[in-house]
Simulated assay, not measured.
Amino acid sequence: MTVAATPLGPEIHRRLADALSPTALEVVNDSHHHTGHLGDDGTGESHWTVTVESPAFVGLNRVARQRLVNQALADLLSSRIHALAIRARAPGEGHGPL
């Protein structure tokens, strides 16, 4: 599979869905806020926020949760994603709607 040939938003969503079986998942492209900044590669797909709720996060601290997300997106983080904000929670943790 050639990662560069895939639109990044759906690819991020698919990978997180496959890896974490989330009960809720939101992938937001924030690249337009960073146009012309360091890390803007001109693709319009360099800066992202993911909000994910998954049973895989039960009992894990924030760092362990972020590691699971980073593992699912490892090759994208090294090649196509310049910045990734992660909001990760377990089901039932009350941080408002996604």
Rank of each mutant, 00 (worst) to 15 (best):
M1S: 12
T2W: 00
V3N: 07
V3W: 11
V3S: 06
A4Y: 10
A5K: 04
A5R: 00
T6W: 12
P7K: 11
P7Q: 06
L8Q: 08
L8Y: 04
G9K: 14
P10T: 09
P10M: 08
E11L: 09
E11I: 05
I12N: 09
R14F: 06
R15V: 15
A17L: 05
D18H: 06
D18S: 07
A19Q: 07
A19H: 03
L20V: 12
S21E: 15
P22C: 08
T23R: 02
A24N: 08
L25H: 11
E26V: 13
V27C: 06
V27A: 02
V27G: 04
V28L: 07
V28K: 13
V28S: 10
V28C: 07
V28M: 10
N29R: 10
D30E: 15
D30L: 14
S31A: 11
H33L: 15
H34G: 02
H34N: 06
T35H: 14
T35Q: 14
G36C: 03
H37E: 12
G39F: 10
G39H: 07
D40I: 02
D40H: 01
D41R: 05
G42A: 07
T43Y: 04
G44I: 08
G44M: 05
G44K: 02
E45G: 03
E45A: 06
E45K: 03
S46T: 05
S46W: 01
H47W: 06
H47V: 05
T49W: 02
T49L: 05
V50Q: 00
V50G: 01
T51H: 00
V52S: 01
V52W: 00
S54W: 05
S54C: 04
S54Q: 03
P55W: 12
F57I: 06
F57C: 01
F57H: 04
V58D: 11
G59I: 10
G59T: 05
L60W: 04
N61Y: 10
V63R: 03
V63M: 11
V63E: 10
V63A: 12
V63F: 12
R65Q: 11
Q66G: 03
Q66T: 08
Q66S: 09
V69N: 02
N70V: 15
N70M: 10
N70C: 13
A72F: 14
A72R: 06
A72W: 14
L73G: 03
A74T: 14
D75Q: 09
L77R: 04
L77T: 01
S78V: 11
S78K: 13
S78I: 12
S78D: 14
S79M: 09
S79D: 13
R80Q: 07
I81R: 01
I81S: 04
H82S: 04
A83G: 07
L84M: 07
A85H: 00
I86A: 01
I86Y: 03
R87M: 10
A88P: 01
A88K: 11
A88S: 13
R89A: 14
R89Y: 12
A90C: 03
P91G: 09
E93H: 05
G94M: 13
G94C: 11
H95C: 15
G96Q: 08
G96S: 10
P97F: 13
L98I: 15
L98W: 15
